[in-house]
């Protein structure tokens, strides 16, 4: 019997290693897998490359991971926010490398990795600082920039419900990067509010099919919030 459910959140992240690339879902705090990150912080691995839309908000989730000094590089679209002080401090101290990617290119590059594409041509960023030095091509009279996929060893995402095969449904705008990060990582780990019996998720409404998800772990609804 296939059961992707993990009884312990610590076990679910037990093989994340020093220097790993880790995608972290969430847009601000919506969809941020706080409990998975807390378990990762407890593991004491470092030198991580984090792929996420932001670079941490406030004191929880990705902000806490950065505060703990575990992150070497952040690939994101919008690091600078009113409450991104832990990133700001590490960045200004020269302790974190930043690769800034326009948000849609971030999504497209993650999706390209999950879809097995070698690269994409995107119009976003053409003629700007963020495309400097990159290959370009004019296609049907329009200019594009060559961008490469972003792969990761792990993805940590938050969904609402899962079954033991790893099928996922999300809640409201907490969905954001979850579905594409699950596709792009070698090991996708989803924390969910509820693991439901196989067959009880409406197959017409499943957002992420279980093929993209390797591990699910249930966290107490409302825990740490």
């Amino acid at each position: 019997m296939i059961d992707k459910g993990f009884a312990s959140i610590d076990q679910a992240v037990a093989d994340i290693f020093d220097g790993a690339s880790v995608m972290v879902g969430g847009f601000g705090t919506a969809g941020m897998p706080d409990e998975l990150i807390d378990a990762l912080i407890a593991r004491n691995v470092g030198e991580l490359t984090i792929i996420s839309n932001n670079a941490g908000n406030g004191e929880t989730g990705l902000a806490a991971l950065i505060k703990a000094g575990r992150v070497r590089k952040v690939i994101c679209s919008f690091p600078r926010q009113a409450d991104s002080h832990h990133f700001d401090a590490r960045y200004r101290a020269g302790e974190i490398e930043l690769e800034l990617v326009p948000q849609g290119n971030l999504a497209a590059r993650i999706q390209a990795a999950g879809a097995g594409l070698g690269a994409i041509f995107t119009p976003t960023g053409f003629g700007t600082l963020l495309a400097e030095g990159k290959e370009t091509r004019r296609i049907d009279g329009k200019d594009y920039v060559l961008e490469y996929p972003i792969h990761a060893d792990f993805a940590l995402i938050k969904a609402q419900r899962a079954d033991r095969w790893g099928n996922l449904v999300y809640r409201k705008t907490a969905r954001n990067f979850g579905p594409i990060m699950a596709m792009a990582a070698k090991t996708a780990i989803a924390q969910v509010a509820e693991i439901v019996p196989l067959g009880s998720l409406d197959p017409e409404a499943i957002v992420t099919p279980g093929i993209f998800v390797q591990r699910v772990v249930q966290v107490a609804p409302g825990a740490a919030h």
């Binding site: 200004r92 930043l98 990617v101 326009p102 849609g104 290119n105 119009p123």
Partner: peptide
């Protein structure tokens, strides 16, 4: 998206995609 001032932490978000899309 960016003032280009030295020391400013750049952030772009979805501005570039929206502008041209």
């Amino acid at each position: 998206w960016h003032t280009g001032e030295p020391g400013a932490i750049p952030a772009v978000g979805g501005a570039m995609d929206l502008a041209i899309g």
